[in-house]
Design a protein around this nucleic acid. Structure first.
Ligand code: NAD
Ligand code: NAD
Lengths: 233, 233
DNA sequence: TTTGCATTGTTATTAAATTAACAATGTTTA
DNA sequence: TAAACATTGTTAATTTAATAACAATGCAAA
């Protein structure tokens, strides 16, 4: 069994954390650090040091006792695991507010993951460039995606068009889809799909804020109750 | 124990799914459906019907045998659980590409969750409005947040400023923070924090696409190997 | 030099989340 | 009317993820 085969069995959560560790490590590297302890990584990511060590164990990386992990080595290893050697090309479908924000954001950030095309149906947008990325007519998706060897599609159309767009992407031979619209899509087996839902996260925060508010309100009531009870004596 | 107390113990994942169920249900309602089966919800959300039924069991909702769940009722119940009666006010800090996209997106969508202010440090942005939302100077965060009773802050500043911003928000008495920058922040206990990392998700998609590519490549090799082996006979 | 200590790496345990199993029930069909 | 069926609701089992426990190691201080 090849080393990379063991990576296939990494827990999904570990994959996510590796991406996050790398981000933290890159920042540390900029600050001229060369080694880092598990508890330092843990602090940054709001997790436990054990979790960090366990993840690193799973990818077979060893640190140095009392010195920690070599940052550059670890970055390289993570790259080995999650990046693909040749890089992966990405397209954005729907060059609206979010699509453009994403393009601006990603431009020239990651070597191995590059947005190389945008698609839209609005004639005003087709043919224009955003941050150096051309916007093509959605109708030409099939050709462009093959021509530019695009493997991942990001959907940022209005949600009413998410399914059509997913179908077009699948038809064009895409391998992975990241759907930012709040309307989930269906794709056949073999196409990796991630639904990325911004409202859910905000609603989750709101829920726990609400819970905390109620807890606080309750504990005031409880304190009053106790007070009354005490005055009975 | 009040009914809402049982909700405090709902699994985190269930909270997330409730938000997603509601979204799906609202769409179904628009299409003039009035009832829905667990397997229909499941299909939309790419999960199993059992998961749906289990979640609904946890929130104590019962459907009708062979008829499914009453969509409106379920929407209302979910609202009871995750929304707060009075609504929650939200602020965006960092009125850049992402901040503006979020404002455009949220404007007039959810009653119970409204973005009511933006903050920035760029004089060109301060005093302007985006989609009806005023942009204030970050310096006045303390006052405005109290004045407008804002409980949740969304951070969309450059990542170099995420920690400063989080501190300002905490200082101003915010209850929950949603951090969209790739640089995690630290907040004291009692402030609910969610780190929302867009790169991680894309990198995750890329990882599984890569795995699939390698699997496909391997299986070609395997097939050739088998071919060779067979021709030995 | 020795003792204590910080830190890693790994196994064991616990907790959280998902899935499976199946009884209950009322509807439809034969 | 009876048999088959679709669907819910719930408990049990399984899987996945996180945490705890602790041995091993070698540096630092005494
Ligand atoms: N803006 C946000 O912050 C935000 C946040 C979360 C989710 N979303 C979701 O992202 C999606 C886009 O949001 P937005 O604010 O950028 O909307 P937008 O209206 O600004 O942009 C949508 C773009 O998609 C194009 N489009 C429409 N139909 C298309 C099709 N069939 N093929 C290709 N392009 C098509 C439009 O011409 C437009 O340029 C929406 O589904 C929204 O719900 C947005
Ligand atoms: N654009 C995206 O699609 C995207 C995606 C994922 C993550 N992000 C993250 O979101 C953040 C914002 O991205 P963007 O593309 O909108 O950047 P941007 O540069 O367009 O916007 C940043 C805004 O923050 C303001 N700002 C700077 N310092 C501030 C401070 N201390 N207080 C208040 N405001 C301040 C700037 O004036 C600017 O208006 C970044 O951290 C980025 O990494 C962006």
């Amino acid at each position: 069994m090849k080393a990379r085969d063991t990576f296939k069995q990494l827990p999904h959560k570990t994959i996510e954390r590796l991406s996050q560790y790398r981000r933290a490590l890159l920042i540390c590297l900029e600050n001229n650090k060369d080694h880092i302890f598990s508890h330092e990584i843990a602090k940054i990511q709001h997790i436990t040091p054990v979790q960090v060590r366990r993840d690193l164990m799973l990818i077979g990386y060893s640190g140095t006792l009392r010195k920690g992990y070599n940052i550059q080595e670890l970055i390289d290893l993570i790259a080995d695991i999650i990046d693909s050697d040749e890089g992966i090309n990405v397209a954005i479908v729907g060059m609206g507010n979010l699509g453009r924000a994403l393009i601006n954001y990603f431009s020239g950030k990651r070597h191995k993951l590059s947005i190389v095309a945008g698609f839209d149906i609005n004639p005003d947008k087709i043919g224009k460039k955003v941050n150096g990325i051309s916007c093509y007519d959605s109708k030409s998706m099939g050709e462009i995606i093959k021509e530019k060897n695009i493997e991942i599609g990001i959907i940022t159309t209005p949600s009413s068009h998410s399914m059509t767009t997913a179908n077009q992407l699948v038809e064009a031979g895409i391998k992975g889809i990241l759907n930012y619209t709040p309307k989930p899509v269906n794709v056949p087996d073999g196409v990796y799909l991630e639904e990325y839902d911004m409202i859910t996260t905000l609603e989750k925060v709101a829920f726990y804020v609400k819970m905390e508010n109620e807890r606080a309100a309750d504990s005031v009531v409880t304190r009053q109750d106790q007070g009354t009870a005490a005055s009975d004596f």
